[in-house]
Design a protein around this nucleic acid. Sequence first.
DNA 1: TGTACATCAGTGAACGCGCGTTCACTGATGTAC
DNA 2: TGTACATCAGTGAACGCGCGTTCACTGATGTAC
Lengths: 220, 220
Amino acid sequence: MSTYKIVSDATISPPERSTYRHGDLRRALLEAGIQLARAGGPDAVVLREATRRAGVVPNAAYRHFASRWELLQAVRSAALSALARRMEAELARVPRGASPADAARASLRAIGTAYLRFAQEETGLFHTAFAIPDETRGEPIPAKAGNSGRNPFQLLGDALDRLVDAGVLPPERRPGAEYLAWSAVRGLAMLLTEGPLRRLTSAERDAIGQRLLDMVEKGL
Amino acid sequence: MSTYKIVSDATISPPERSTYRHGDLRRALLEAGIQLARAGGPDAVVLREATRRAGVVPNAAYRHFASRWELLQAVRSAALSALARRMEAELARVPRGASPADAARASLRAIGTAYLRFAQEETGLFHTAFAIPDETRGEPIPAKAGNSGRNPFQLLGDALDRLVDAGVLPPERRPGAEYLAWSAVRGLAMLLTEGPLRRLTSAERDAIGQRLLDMVEKGL
DNA sequence: TGTACATCAGTGAACGCGCGTTCACTGATGTAC
DNA sequence: TGTACATCAGTGAACGCGCGTTCACTGATGTAC
């Protein structure tokens, strides 16, 4: 059930290794897991395949992860980090000279834009980050942060706070606003990646993304 | 990976049957498939389990469905129908005496409310309806309609058309508006069913749902 | 500087699981004469 | 009204698959003396 792009396996790093010890198997497994998630989403993060790519026997993984689930959580964490970093990069492009109100609005847009781009450019990682993999089995994992130390959801909250500080968003509308904004962008990401908007050109995608962000800005 | 409610299997209809012929196996398989989807989402629609519940040998299913995929599509179709019917029921409650503008607004709200309720009350069916199951293998299936003969997406379109007719929504904003509204409601449904809003009380859920619909109405 | 030994990363083999699907079949039905 | 036969729904047995995980092991490393 891989809904994502099929990637040729021909270029997969061969399991060449001369030493008995691998050296950095945990990292290798994690990286393999990330590649799998990138290409096929959470279901594609398969323990045995990760060990194959690391050039190691299947059960070797258990020296570094207690179960498949733990590997998946590590991958998920990495995906969230990657998204946070994209958001930070987009935030860094907000022009300095603007008024507080404009700057705040631009920040919110930057968050939304980064989110939508990430969903489209890294669809597999995106779905891995936000598909909840059987939560009953473990505590909620602290969402991994970007360079600023803030996770994607916190970055959104920060942007909304700036809107309030700049007088653009009435304070009484602030509580819970992240969920409204998040919903809009999350839903569009679904439509764009696995829904009816899948076949749009990238210009059309950008256009509808900006319209959606307009709606959020006006409607919040 | 069933993220949904676990349902006791004790009450499952036993495979009692005296005749060699089943009589209505196709229907029985479909119904079993719907129950499976209801309880566990699309991944839970497992051919062998459906035949078990129908009291029949696994390969008997192939007299009625060419593959698991076809059964899944049939289930998906039924799920879309169920949603359409909920929307129609909610639309029927829109007060008659209101002005065209108010009636149009209420129609859009009815659509959104029905969608969000369906997502929460029939989470498994909801996810089955909107998870695209490997589209590469078949043509898009015409989304099954409700009693009015219109599918959920068309019902949303109708509501938006009424907004335009009533002068509430400027005509130039009409094209593509269904995707914006759909996104918002789709995203919130994700947050409510498998995201951070999962643990909210039903009053809180309703409240945030209505806020989201406010945002859409204002922002469109 | 050299040796004994504990540590523990990776191996080898195997497990049980449940799945979708194929094959050649058997048995009840309903239609043609 | 009775019988022959075609149809085809459901059976029985088996397939290959890949998965996560467990067990007892072996071999390289690095530390203590």
